[in-house]
Design a protein around this nucleic acid. Structure first.
Lengths: 152, 152
DNA sequence: GTATCTGCAAATGCTTTGCACACCC
DNA sequence: GGGTGTGCAAAGCATTTGCAGATAC
């Protein structure tokens, strides 16, 4: 996991600005979700996020979680990752851009950045006359631990 | 689109072997789906495939299409691609491995291979002690045509 | 006070499954 | 003839939406 580039308080500050900009009102839940994702060092599913929030607020509904996650993604406070067919997972965006290594056996996720590949991607897009907006790269592997386990 | 590496007849031959190996029986539909994907030069959704097949066979059901697509993917006759939230698209696997450039505006899909990136991916996985099984890279762009259209 | 936010339940959309009949070997 | 394939309708599952009450400004 990469270092976080920003304090939680600083993110929440940006969130409040973004809320004003969009003519919306403050809500505890939006900040809660940001906090949960900031404090957690893993990629969480909407349901996992809901469960964490329900510890404090029993009544929280999964539909609000989805609504807020969509807003936070649109505003680039969080990013999504699909590790398998079970749905999306979310992580805080306040980290350097990175791609993912996903273990097909245990589901473990590692992160990495490779500037050589990043540069090459821009070249590839440009050579086709395209403007690169974003990319997405997932390496599906068997991780060291799972290889070890299989060997036994 | 890359060159196809194999004739349709040769693929169907392999399909028949695979069917025997799995203790299954021949069916016109499996061959039909392979043919549709072979002849089509685009990535098709299950529904689009169903529509093409319904031209010949009105009664074809979407559930059979899904069942067969899952089988064909498991047996590596076809591969999947998710271009957006609308679901999976399928293409024939009888092409060289490649990755995809997806236009965010018109949905157009281009294919490419970059050996430098492929090699780098193996290095990245190996450096983390992982065994690379497969990967997946999507470049999301605005294609030349859409840039042109936006300029007007 | 008015507009947004929330929880709940219902709806949606893609995909899978159960079942009865059709078909292949 | 016994097992597999198919169409149909129903079920599943993640996600979205409509609505009425709650809350923020």
């Amino acid at each position: 996991m990469q270092n976080r580039l920003e304090t939680l308080e600083s993110i929440l500050e940006r969130l409040r600005v973004s809320i004003k900009k969009n003519g919306l009102k403050n809500s505890k839940q939006r900040e809660e979700i940001i906090s949960v994702l900031y404090k957690n060092r893993t990629h969480l599913s909407p349901e996992e996020i809901a469960n964490e929030i329900k510890v404090k607020d029993k009544n929280t509904s999964i539909s609000s979680i989805y609504r807020i996650l969509n807003f936070l993604e649109k505003e680039k406070f969080i990013t999504t990752l699909e590790t398998d067919k079970s749905g999306k997972r979310y992580e805080i965006a306040a980290k350097e851009h990175h791609d993912h290594i996903i273990c097909l056996e245990c589901g473990d996720i590692q992160e990495f950045v490779d500037t050589a590949i990043e540069e090459q991607q821009i070249k590839i897009a440009t050579n086709s006359g395209c403007k690169l907006i974003s990319h997405d790269m997932r390496l599906f592997v068997v991780c060291a631990k799972c290889q070890e386990r299989n060997r036994v």
